[in-house]
């Protein structure tokens, strides 16, 4: 696995460099915004950071026809899938860490104007990370079962159907509230552990599904 990680790092390093000015510019804007306007929209920052970092870690494999070459290397298909899951997860954690750093920085710059991130805000950031994780675990099997572009198409169709179903099921406000639901659950320790356990189980299921599908893929 270690060579795969080093390869992933080497290949996405240039991409990260390309995106870092954009990311830095955006984060600076966020810090300035927070210091001047006092509004703390940590979830907004968190969402972008995580989303961007996940994209980068899976980006390299999706856009260029690299999967054919990777499959020809002396590694098993299972190792390839595990690496992609690990990288996406690292992207997620890095996004969360970046978010907290931004909030902390804003507070450090202007303690008076930007209050230190309250536990409530921290919980919402973690909740958002969990929503992203849920989305990620649902997304990755599609990209492993089908060829990247078709995989993304299939995933977006499935996502729209799921949204429509939840709209029909819980009405307008209920559906879009996975985030608020997670926030509430995280409030007490016991349900929080249950939620995290459930998500981990879903992750493992997604991993085995992806591994099974990827082994059958032709390159």
């Amino acid at each position: 696995m270690r060579p795969l990680i080093r390869m992933a790092w080497a290949t996405s390093r240039r991409l990260l460099l390309l995106m870092s000015p954009l990311l830095a510019f955006y984060l600076a804007l966020m810090v300035v915004h927070q210091v001047t306007k006092r509004g703390t929209d940590i979830p907004a920052i968190a969402f972008t950071c995580m989303f961007m970092l996940i994209i980068v870690s899976t980006f390299q494999g999706l856009t260029f026809d690299v999967e054919g070459f990777m499959a020809s290397l002396p590694v098993t298909r299972a190792q390839l899938v595990r690496t992609k899951y690990l990288l996406s997860f690292l992207g997620l954690l890095a996004g969360l860490a970046l978010t907290l750093a931004v909030a902390g920085l804003a507070h450090a710059l202007a303690p008076g104007r930007a209050a230190a991130p309250t536990p409530e805000e921290l919980r919402s950031a973690v909740a958002l990370a969990l929503v992203d994780a849920f989305g990620l675990f649902a997304f990755l099997p599609f990209v492993h079962a089908f060829e990247p572009s078709r995989g993304i198409l299939a995933f977006s169709l499935a996502a729209i159907l799921a949204l429509a179903a939840s709209l029909a099921g819980w009405g307008l406000d209920g559906a879009a509230d996975l985030f608020r639901f997670f926030q509430r659950v995280l409030a007490q320790p016991a349900p929080a552990l249950g939620l995290i356990g459930g998500l981990l189980a879903f992750g493992l299921l997604s991993l085995s599904l992806s591994t099974w599908a990827y082994a059958r893929r032709s390159f």
């Binding site: 080497a10 240039r14 260029f64």
Partner: peptide
């Protein structure tokens, strides 16, 4: 196609392990 963004010497480094 290998890794289009990588330089020729980097390709060696990445595949070596």
């Amino acid at each position: 196609t290998l890794f289009p963004l990588l330089r020729v010497d980097e390709l060696g480094e990445v595949v070596a392990p």
